[in-house]
Design a protein around this nucleic acid. Structure first.
Length: 397
RNA sequence: GGAGGGGUGGUCGAGUGGUUAAAGGCACCAGACUGUAAAUCUGGCCGCGAGAGCGUACGUUGGUUCGAAUCCAACCCCCUCCA
């Protein structure tokens, strides 16, 4: 590490923009962009949907299947893996890529989301967060430094996320500011701990709840610190679709155009389309795999509850246009039967279809943006989505 | 033929005088799920009615009682053991 880099790493403020993973934007259409984030483990085509593999597995799928759906990158999780099997153990076993057999790029969440989702099991201080394990009740500390050590050194993530606090929705502006500023400080410490690396990247996370001034300030202060990518956190936590779009409207303009923007934890297909329209490049969400396990298949018209009686003798596939056996080759009647019978294959096929559908959706957006036809795509998609919503509303009356 | 046990809502199964339209499970009909404490959770589930409510219901028939799924009698059916 040279002197300038060391100074940058230790002050965390004057760092030059890092370009360890070049981001090539091939086309833009309105605020929407398509391009490639080039990592040492492979290219990530954007807009990108990253399947979530919390516990070193994209639940119910083989890594080969995940890859074949077109996913370029998947997620892992600091909190879950440090509890089980333990970050040091993963390191001894050769790192998360070797351990899981996923050889493409991997992004790990810092544990920041668990600060929110496990709020009853944690205690926060300036230093970091103490979790009581949801598995055995044992205590575990997570500081920004430890989170980076786990992600970058032990798991070997290609993209590490700064430790942050996923600010709960419904808090006051004052609380949101306090939380956002803590995340900024944790981000700076994360960056110092991360230092400069040849083949690994660090993303910062914009917080600020639904407050425009806070989101803007958060973005500006992250840029001062300088990250390889900029995530938008604290959304899809109860604020609703319209509000989320509003926040994106006044947040993405403050993020560097040259670096990837990652909307964390989002979302439904319509959320992806509308976020891409607002300049977001990357997404992750448990929805396709979780709802797959719960009997739901995704489509342009919204969710299909495969357990509904109407599918008992529906011989049509979920989506013949998607190049995935689960989408194309199996009938809804069969999937309906498997789910009703409680068969494992139900979760596997529905998760597979859903991941393939999300990849198909981002692929279509990439094509539309490259062709300069994203607005038309967006309009048509919204039409189908709203039509589906109207049909479901009618059926439920 | 003798002795004993049992018949409860689609199903399995609690309940042995009133707070019981009847626990609970399953099945069935729906809904939810957004950086995964989730192969989970929620609601509905006799009929009619928007609702208060009304009607019908614990094998059948009859009885006791202010009141019966619960007590009594007869009958029908099922199971176990003995001969």
């Amino acid at each position: 590490m040279n002197e300038a880099a060391f100074a940058a790493a230790t002050t965390g403020l004057e760092a030059p923009p890092m370009t360890v993973f070049p981001y090539q934007i091939h086309a833009t259409d309105g605020a929407a962009r398509t391009g490639v984030l080039k990592t040492t483990r492979g290219d990530i085509r954007t807009p990108a949907f990253m399947p979530v593999g919390t516990a070193a597995t994209v639940k119910a799928l083989y890594m080969d299947q995940v890859k074949a759906t077109g996913a370029d990158i998947i997620l892992g999780n600091t909190y879950h893996l440090m509890l089980r099997p333990g970050a040091e153990r993963v390191k001894r076993l050769g790192g998360l890529h070797k351990f899981s057999t996923w050889q493409g790029p991997m992004l790990t969440d810092s544990g920041g989301f668990q600060v929110w989702s496990l709020s009853k099991l944690r205690k926060m201080t300036e230093e970091g967060v103490t979790f009581r394990s949801h598995i055995d009740g044992s205590e575990h500390n997570l500081t920004p430094e430890r989170s980076i050590e786990i992600q970058a050194d032990l798991l070997g993530a290609d993209i590490s996320m700064q430790l942050d606090e996923c600010t709960p929705f419904g808090c006051s502006e004052k609380e949101a500011r306090t939380s956002m500023e803590l995340s900024i400080r944790w981000g700076q410490r994360s960056k110092v701990a991360f230092g400069t690396r040849d083949s690994q990247a660090l993303f910062g996370i914009v917080q600020g709840s639904v407050f425009e001034n806070l989101r803007r300030e958060s973005a500006e202060r992250l840029i001062e610190t300088g990250y390889d990518g900029y995530a938008i956190g604290g959304l899809a936590v109860g604020e609703g679709f319209e509000k989320m779009c509003d926040v994106l409207d006044f947040t993405t303009p403050h993020l560097p155009t040259a670096r990837p923007r990652y909307l964390m934890g989002v979302g439904k297909p319509i959320d992806l389309v509308e976020a891409v329209a607002r300049g977001v490049d990357m997404f992750d969400c448990v929805l396709p795999t979780r709802s797959g396990r719960h009997g739901q298949a995704w489509s342009d018209h919204g969710p299909i509850n495969i357990k509904r009686a109407e599918f008992a003798e529906d011989d049509s596939p979920l989506n013949p246009d998607i190049d995935c056996p689960a989408s194309r080759d199996y009938s809804k009647a069969y999937l309906h039967h498997l789910f009703r019978a409680g068969e494992y294959l139900s979760a596997m096929l529905l998760s597979w279809h859903n991941i393939a559908y999300f990849q198909h959706l981002t692929a279509r957006m990439r094509v539309a943006i490259a062709a300069g036809e994203f607005e038309a795509f967006r309009r048509e998609f919204r039409g189908k989505w709203e039509q589906g919503e109207a049909q479901r509303a009618k059926a439920n009356n």
